[in-house]
Amino acid sequence: MSIWKGALTTVAPRGLGVRGLVAVIAVLQLGGCATTRVEQSRQSNAVLGAGEAMVILGRSTYNDRETEESFTDCLADILRQGSNPIRLVSEDQFKDDLYPWFESRTAPTNANELGRLFAEAGVQAQIDQSSIRYLAWIEGDTVTIDKGGSMSCAVSTFGGGCFGMSFWEQDASYEASIWDLKNLSASGQISADANGTSYLAGLVVPIPILARPGNAACKGLAAQLRVFVTGIEE
């Protein structure tokens, strides 16, 4: 299954003073161009039952990258709301309740290790008590892949301003691996890739036109994740 989403917005400032300020604020509320691609593979058709919950965990590895906390927070905020809200157990609560089994270096790396983990004293009981059915591991990040242009700003006793144009292109790539804690197996994967170029135009006042591919990937992944665990198409 693939979903493609895109949006393109251009804004030109009209002048300075109140009108200029209004234009800047309006620009900040709008976005640049971001293209999102979401793909899913599914290994089981099970869905969340009544009262069952899900937990979203960000993978943190010990290299120079990790899944941003802001991304998992974004997913959680979206999934808790909407027409089919999902009961989520927070990452902090989950890690505390199951300490030391889900720390960065002790957490299971694949669903095959769940059986051994659930044999540990108290683990199964804790999961049952919280009614957690699904665990979604989020892996990925947003990186700047290109940037260019130039802008200079100056201030004097007569005033100041910025002139020029700069841009940066970002690529957001995330994958959710969903584990079924009832069947102790992997349920499927959803990946979301978004790409967008942001601009900063200096026309006396600097005017940003932001693409926010990370936000686009979050929305795309959250929408598909909701369908995946509830079985209800929006």
């Binding site: 890690k95 089994w101 108290g122």
Partner: peptide
């Protein structure tokens, strides 16, 4: 920070 109670035997 939070101080978790370990879930160990």
């Amino acid at each position: 920070g939070r101080i978790p109670t370990p879930l160990i035997e």
